[in-house]
Write a protein that binds this DNA or RNA. Structure first.
Lengths: 210, 210, 210, 210
DNA sequence: TATGAATGAGCATTCATTCAT
DNA sequence: AATGAATGAATGCTCATTCAT
């Protein structure tokens, strides 16, 4: 089996539609937890076995290699987030509302899937070749989603050079959160989202001058 | 020898003033290059030996452990950057000018010391105990430097809760650069700095409304 | 697996009752052979691998560290000897008969398990912390066994200060054997035991005077 | 230089007569301390350098190799002890008095040169080839010294088979002391010597019967 | 499905020793 | 007489992976 189907033996890969078996589910979330904490390369397959109660060899029924395990996590997580965001991006409303929604969704997803999202955010480079490419595609779609909203807010074309940078600045703010967010101190996330959107839209000067 | 002087046997540690020997210098910059590229845990001491031409064991004359090597890089780099920024933070001028300068300096330092700064940015957690603590102190001083400028621009106290988040957003923008910057495409850095400062101060709406 | 169960995850530790698997058995006896010959610290895990035909890493399935391997040998050997001696010490008969039996048993055990006993005798200090403590307990029980017999022969309390020294002198004679015993020259062991008991009971003067 | 003169370049080797330079003296006694504590193979030349304040390379002026250092310690210590004992063995008096003196001297020497004597006692096998042979010669002379006294007490020829074993039993008692002696508890050494001689001459039964 | 047993490559580190100075 | 710098070999150990069952 070993989902993701990079070898093309089955048709189960889609990710969004395939029902992930509960044991695999547990495997993925435990692994994500460990990898978020220690990083991919410092998480050993043995760690995962201990955490999940599986035997070392037994887990290889569910994935074909450590890298495949990482891929599975990223594929599942990223395509699920992407689905949410592409839906949000196609909603009616003002550009500003869409941007607000995209940022809010990202933060909400972060709250509920912190480990998985951290792994998606920081471990793309631990994938190679085809697995890298597949996730990179999702990432580009996600970037594009955000870039369009930014462009619209700016009233520019998405290809306008400034748009790229500004979108990347926004992703920087969003992704850096993994480095400092402390639920005790920084909740609620709504509020955080508002602050971020406010900075993004109006800057520190708050629209007072320009 | 093994500089860094975590054991407190000498007085050479300061970093800024001690003339680092040229061989150590090369060791540190080669290591930083590898670690920036592959990550600390995936950079083997053998890699460093091959890159530098040293024998495997020979390098242990210059540092006492792999972690010590990482510490040496971070200490040297971070304290040098910090020196620059603390000077900038104490200059006369408007708060906005100071913030602009801090961001500009950071980006300029990034351009000239990309590898080292990347290692400082992403590998703090690879240090432990005392070495972690020592670098964490520098990082906090750096944060504080930026937070003061942000607070001044906002006309708030540095302790105001919003200041922390906004400062972290700015660091997010700055630090995420390692993930996407491409000299071909994204130079000159001055321009990038201006864009970032512009976003930070005025937002996407560019101060046009509030 | 890694028997010995210092981490308390299983119930196999007893040593006397647990049937040691044949592969582990071979590992332990080969290791004991090498360690008896060259000493613990000079016996490399690679040596053991070569001797046993295991791969280097493969052996770590059976023990968790080199020190654990040493512990396993000592625990198994010492608790087996102790069982024999504690039984002998509780037999009926005169004190002199009991002492004779203890010395005879020790020498007989030496003949059949020379390597293991040598390792027990000279490598206690190569163990640390809990492993040290556990073997030290066995050793103290063994000492106590012998000391009781000595005390009885002397007609003293086991706590009498002279008893300790005399017991230690006897252990000195017994343990020093590893340094000189040569089967060609010094067999049979019965005879050696008689000579030792004779010295211990009657001295060089053979009870002729006092 | 590197005393001991195994290479035959000089005539300084004798040991008894050559005035050992004070720096070498310190080197030898520090080394003996470390080697007595941790064993020869676990004492690194770096340990010795740190303990003595010498630089690593600098010490090689005084000995040619780690093994040479061990040899130097053993040669100096053993030949000094041997000198004392051969003198004692040639004194007038009864055989019993001579045996008593030999045991007493050994214990006294142990008290004043515990580290060195421990190294002589347990690290002969760490020497090889010629160095081994040279120390083995001293050891055999020492054994012979004691064996003659034992033989005389027994009224046997030194070649009588029982004499060898009995002498070895005595050396066992004497040498095992390194394993348990605690100055707090076991002083004074005179008393210990008397107890040992008493056991050796009269046994536990104290000559009461036979 | 799942496991126990095993492998081979790789890793950080230590160490005795050398040598130019 | 002594040092700083460097080496090459060895060591204990971990790890992803495999495979018969």
């Amino acid at each position: 089996m070993t989902t993701g189907d990079l070898t093309g033996t089955g048709a189960s890969s889609g990710g969004r539609t395939s029902r992930t078996a509960p044991k695999l589910e547990k495997l993925l979330s435990s692994s994500a937890g460990l990898m978020a904490q220690r990083g991919f390369s410092q998480t050993s397959i043995r760690d995962v076995a201990n955490e999940t109660g599986f035997s070392l060899g037994g887990m290889y029924y569910y994935f074909k290699s450590k890298e495949d395990l990482l891929y599975l996590i990223q594929e599942k997580t990223f395509s699920s987030l992407l689905e949410i965001q592409e839906a949000a991006a196609s909603h009616d409303g003002t550009a500003e509302e869409r941007l607000r929604k995209l940022i809010g969704n990202h933060l909400a997803y972060f709250l509920s899937h912190a480990n998985e999202l951290k792994v998606c955010t920081f471990e793309l480079e631990s994938l190679q070749d085809e697995r890298y490419d597949r996730i990179a595609v999702l990432r580009r779609r996600y970037f594009s989603c955000m870039a369009h909203a930014v462009a619209e807010v700016l009233g520019e074309s998405p290809n306008h050079p400034g748009v790229r940078h500004k979108t990347l600045f926004i992703f920087g703010m969003l992704n850096w959160i993994f480095m400092w967010f402390d639920p005790e101190r920084d909740e609620p996330v709504d509020r955080l989202g508002d602050e971020m959107v406010d900075l993004v839209l109006n800057g520190l000067n708050g629209g007072k001058d320009g």
